[in-house]
Design a protein around this nucleic acid. Structure first.
Length: 569
RNA sequence: GCGCCUGUAGCUCAGGGGAUAGAGCAGUGGACUUCUAAUCCAUUAGUCGGGGGUUCAAAUCCUCCCAGGCGCGCCA
């Protein structure tokens, strides 16, 4: 598609008195394929030419009546637009060949040139169960990780575990008061969570518990032996649980640098802040005023000397830059922390770090139940493991019903079940809140991963019967695909690279997810109208090349969403 | 009180200056002797939350309201 645009740009530029690049940015997608494949709106020329846009479109088309391009066929005026029709044979050959040659690298563009991008995602809070609320950061972050990698960046995944902070004081108090070794051994994460909930229930009646918790956290920060021992146990037990889920989801991190990882650096950070003179003492605490930047001031150190979340984030940001010299640093964290990140980035800027502008918060909406917001403290939570397993079971049932002869039902059920949950999270604009609903979470019909996976499986089935080996490329066969359904599909396949780039720039995997729905839909239309195996030789060959390219696009796209593309389902 | 986000078909959501605002679900009616019917085709459905403004052109940009959500120095 880019080549077509460039060609039109070169052609049109001298006639309209612009640079080719300017023409290209003006080009649009016509709303209906019958209008053409690429539109040039003539409004901008109305003033200089002192003519009505429709007349300009008319004149331009007449001027170019005898022109023919490599990829375009004709230019037809329609109202104020000059619409270009591509030459389906040449265009199809070009696109399919590109996909054929690039194979599993099709859509990948080396924009990053090996530069580092750190991506902070998942980052659960230790000693809290991994609920459905954590899935958003995990799944969106992991997809961005893969997308940046595909664009030639060196992605560095960091799991910023919430393994430090006053919640450990609370857990220690709760465990010392009400804890049982027996129960802890049996189901560690759930049990710690119950203790956490109990603490918050009890604190309503006995506010002194909070002071006790603060004091235990203070001890922890001082390296008190007993406190550290508890902390290590709680951390290890929680981590074991998270790792099971990451295994299931196929997610890996370069680093498990939790908040505690930065403990040794906090003193230095506080020192630097003081040196820069951007802080002041207030009632014994250390504050940075941000009022002049229309932001609430932040506290970096409590009156008892304990540090806060933002202090550790400050240390983490500096550490990440010093260690990785990142081109970008992304934080895939819920939208409720928007203010926190604005403050964090502002403080970094005030400290004189010009790389602060390369840090970005990638926010997403909350998952909520019908009754209201999910609250870890109140004990309302649905475990992610439960959702994933239920989804896999459900997929298994559907496979049993639809395709009882399938040899490997387990791996198909896993691909479809996990895909459904992931896709539910990736296909909508991340900023929107999601209402958790079992029926919706486990719905396999409509605009879902299963729809895309099914198209992929169907293609694989035809390819198994039709056969295409490594030497199967054929220029002539690839240029025979000129039916509307074929051209529409090819046009869709052509824009995968643009969609990957757009997803990366906006930090929105949903752009890619939506696009794959389009690919599957165009394929299904083709499938129902254009027989492959029963077509005569050359056309059959061409169509095999087309569906193979479609298979490749779906596989490459789903891979970047972290979703498997099964060959049978 | 102040700040940020969201508001599009009955429901869930795309589209984020340009041509008649699009999908899925739900509803209705069709298509399997033919490459997997987890599919396809047809059809119903909208004062794009409301008022002003900018523009040749606004669902889209600005502004003010309304509704919901999330935040706002000793949690993370």
């Amino acid at each position: 598609m880019q080549k077509l645009k460039e060609e039109v740009g070169r052609l049109l530029a001298p006639r309209v008195g612009m640079k080719p690049a300017e023409v290209i940015t003006l080009l649009e997608d016509p709303p209906d394929p019958s209008y053409g494949d690429l539109a040039f709106p003539c409004f901008v020329l109305a003033k200089t030419r002192r003519k009505a846009p429709p007349l300009i479109a008319q004149e331009l088309s007449e001027e170019m009546a005898d022109e023919r391009g490599l990829f375009w066929d004709k230019a037809v005026p329609k109202g104020p637009y000059l619409n270009f029709f591509l030459a389906p044979d040449a265009f199809g050959r070009e696109v399919l060949q590109d996909i054929w040659n690039s194979a599993d690298k099709y859509g990948h563009v080396n924009i990053g040139k090996g530069e580092n991008v750190t991506i902070d995602y998942s980052s659960p809070n230790i000693a809290k169960p991994f609920g459905v609320g954590h899935i958003r950061s995990t799944v969106i972050g992991h997809s961005l990780y893969l997308i940046y990698q595909a664009l030639g960046y060196n992605s560095i995944g960091i799991n910023h575990l919430g393994d430090w902070g006053t919640q450990f004081g609370k857990l220690i108090v709760a465990f010392k008061r009400w804890g049982s070794e027996e129960e802890l051994k049996q189901d560690p994460v759930n049990y710690l969570y119950q203790l956490y909930v109990k603490f918050h229930r009890e604190v309503e009646e006995s506010p002194e518990l909070d002071d006790e918790a603060r004091s235990w956290f203070w001890k922890l920060e001082q390296g008190d032996g007993e406190a550290v021992e508890y902390w290590e146990r709680f951390r290890r037990l929680s981590l074991d649980n998270y790792e099971q889920i990451y295994d299931l989801l196929g997610i890996k991190f370069e680093y498990y640098h939790g908040e505690s990882h930065y403990n040794q650096m906090l003193e230095k950070v506080i020192e630097v802040v003081r040196e820069k003179g951007i802080a002041r003492e207030s009632e014994g605490a250390l504050m940075v005023d941000l009022e002049q930047y229309d932001l609430p001031s932040v506290m970096l150190q409590k009156k008892d000397g304990a540090t806060l979340y933002i202090t550790r984030d400050l240390a983490a940001a500096i550490y990440r830059f010093e260690t990785f010299n990142f081109a970008r640093s992304l934080y895939v964290v819920g939208a409720e922390q928007t203010l926190h990140f604005q403050q964090l980035f502002k403080v970094l800027e005030l400290l004189g770090f010009e790389w602060a502008k390369n840090c970005a918060h990638v926010p997403f909406g909350l998952i909520r139940f019908k009754e209201g917001r999910m609250s870890t403290r109140a004990g309302k939570i649905i475990l992610l493991e439960e959702v994933l397993n239920r989804s896999i079971d459900m997929a298994r049932e559907i496979i049993e019903e639809k395709n009882p002869d399938l040899p490997d039902k387990d791996s198909a059920a896993k691909a479809v079940g996990l895909g459904a949950v992931r896709f539910g999270d990736l296909s909508n604009d991340r900023i929107k809140n999601i209402e958790f609903d079992w029926d919706k979470a486990l719905d396999f019909s409509g605009e879902t991963a299963a729809y895309i996976q099914y198209a992929h499986a169907r293609i694989c089935s035809i390819l198994r019967k039709g056969g295409l080996d490594d030497t199967a490329w054929d220029d002539h066969a690839a240029s025979l695909l000129t039916r509307d359904e074929e051209t529409a599909l090819i046009k869709t396949l052509a824009i995968l690279p643009d969609k990957i780039i757009a997803s990366a720039e906006s930090y929105k995997p949903s752009i890619l997810a939506r696009y794959l729905i389009d690919v599957a839909r165009e394929f299904n239309r083709f499938y129902h109208n254009c027989p492959v195996l029963s077509s005569e030789d050359e056309l059959k060959h061409g169509r095999l090349l087309l569906i193979n390219a479609t298979r490749q696009v779906i596989a490459n796209g789903l891979a970047l969403l972290g979703i498997e593309a099964p060959e049978e389902m």
